[in-house]
Write a protein that binds this DNA or RNA. Structure first.
Lengths: 194, 194, 194, 194
DNA sequence: GATGAATGAGAATTCATTCAT
DNA sequence: GATGAATGAATTCTCATTCAT
């Protein structure tokens, strides 16, 4: 009984995501996914070439989509500070809205980042571009934009990580302004004397 | 465990660590490890109950050992600022001294953190205790110590992550003071008006 | 079956034949056939009960049709020698006209011969009947007609096999008379003294 | 309980050979082989890289070994006629001694011949070399040695094939001299006038 | 007649673990 | 302590076949 094809796909993706977060991608078998999504094992292969391809697709699609949201948020602001605030808020809202997806991206990143096309727009590239702009506008010191980007990203991501492990209490949105301000102060740190 | 005198054991751990970083723990078979370490497959079970136990041991032993180093570094300083500086420096030196081990801890953490005993001293608890002390000494604002700890940790770890992915050029030690200063500024951010 | 008017059916058979020769019957999936013939996978089952039935049909239909051609050629001649010449020529023309079909019959024979009805007229039975006739007419020695049939068949088939593997250069038609003469001499070999 | 390693290997090969002949290589699963050989499925992979590799090994090893026997038989004779007689006898003895192996080689040849190294000595090359020698010694007409080789091979192989299908009654050894004589007469056929 | 998503049994293969030597 | 062949359950993936549209 062929159901709506996109329905099958969505069920597979939703349950796969959840299981990957609960037991890891390697700890989740195709059978697990099929059973949770209530489809036959073989059905998965009509939609994805392999289990690996499913993982890669879930990562790449959501990672780059989030990069797009980050970029849109950033574009709506005129100053570096506004951009950082907007991006941090986007991160926090994402975490609050779909913690499962957020955790998936967090957990599998180290196995997947290398598989992205070199020119893919990612949260990292968006952040880095914003840093470059802020430096050019002399809003922050002239340090390696990658370093500034790492700091902003680290502040938010580690807060989210602590939320995942119960050390910080979600939702994160109420903390957004505070994190953004801390991030701005971090990247405003003057360059050390040489 | 460096004080274990068994040569076999050390060979297994060294090569396992490397392979886990290169191909992931699940992507590395006992046979892979045995071949790299030039021992028979069965020999591994003389030293560890299972492959899982090997992974858990490598994580727990090194993670808590590093927590100890962090704590020692922190204790040697009297002020919050000094403690943060010392801890950041310890992080950076660790990354520079043994990038493979650092990456292992970074990559497998999400699968291993939950398996640590609840009362284990970890880098996180060390950081959190330092934050609590700094708050008590009124060196930084009275926010949730977990949040301050997350920020310091995020700043350093994300810088290291960028180093792993080639976005920041190692060694990290030369950046240590700058990162510590940024961290200090971040956690010094005044509490938002309520 | 050439007289089947269905275009779909013909496309299926033609491409199936080619794929079976290229990758073997087991190495060719229904999907492969459907894609090559540009029909849906399910369409195949409108024409054949199963993939197995398709293979069996392709073999049986063509094998017995060829037996018919062989028989017709044989009948047109009055002498054993003429009959052998005519049959060898028919073999060679078949190979030259449709090498793909010839190879298919050659390759799958061992899996299919047992499935033919016991009374089916095949190239083997035709040859054997001709040998029996030639013996009765005292044109060749009185040996087991199966043996004589095997020799004629072997001479032609192995020449064709060498052509398939590039050891003999097609077309075979120009060699037909020579092969037939060799075959005739082989089966004319006097019976050994007892 | 590790039995003698070569024993396991031999059991696998013997039963695989039999099953391949009975049900075809594709019709025989690794599980079938393992059960027949009374080993676990995984044990097979300690000895062969894959099921395919097992098939290929069984073919190549036995096919080339037989080529060696053929060559030895041929070398022991001084004349073309003697060589043909000796080779035909070797074929017949092989069939009689190990019909299962003979049938295996016969059945899978078309899937395996292309996988042999280009320079492998095979029954075909041995036969062809003998034909070349006979032509040089003016024992038989100057036709393409491949053609003469095909005829000798065809005569024997098709007789064996008929024996496999019950059309000729084994053993073949008693027919050996008669087949050899027929083969010799076939390849002695004068070249056609041009 | 045709489509192609879905089925689900079964295939090959991997691999952590055991154990006789 | 060490070896490595053997185990056998589990995994990923394939594929002939079905069936709602």
């Amino acid at each position: 009984m062929p159901r709506d094809s996109s329905d099958t796909r969505q069920r597979i993706e939703r349950h796969a995501l959840r299981l990957f977060v609960e037991h890891g991608a390697d700890g989740t078998s195709v059978r697990d996914i099929a059973q949770a999504a209530k489809v036959a094992e073989g059905a998965l292969y009509r939609h994805y070439e392999s289990k690996d391809a499913l993982v890669a697709h879930l990562f790449a699609a959501n990672y780059t989509r989030f990069a797009g949201e980050l970029d849109a948020a950033q574009r709506a602001e005129g100053t570096g500070r506004g951009k950082v605030r907007a991006m941090v808020a986007t991160f926090c809202r994402f975490f609050d809205a779909d913690p499962v997806l957020f955790r998936f991206l967090l957990f599998v990143q180290h196995g997947q980042l290398a598989r992205l096309p070199d020119d893919a727009a990612t949260p990292v590239t968006v952040l880095q571009d914003v840093m470059t702009g802020a430096i050019e506008r002399r809003e922050i010191p002239r340090r390696d934009p990658a370093l500034s980007a790492a700091w902003v990203m680290g502040l938010v991501l580690q807060t989210a990580t602590f939320a995942v492990y119960g050390r910080v209490k979600p939702p994160l949105a109420p903390l957004s302004a505070e994190i953004a301000e801390a991030a701005w102060r971090a990247i405003s740190t003057p360059m050390p004397a040489r």
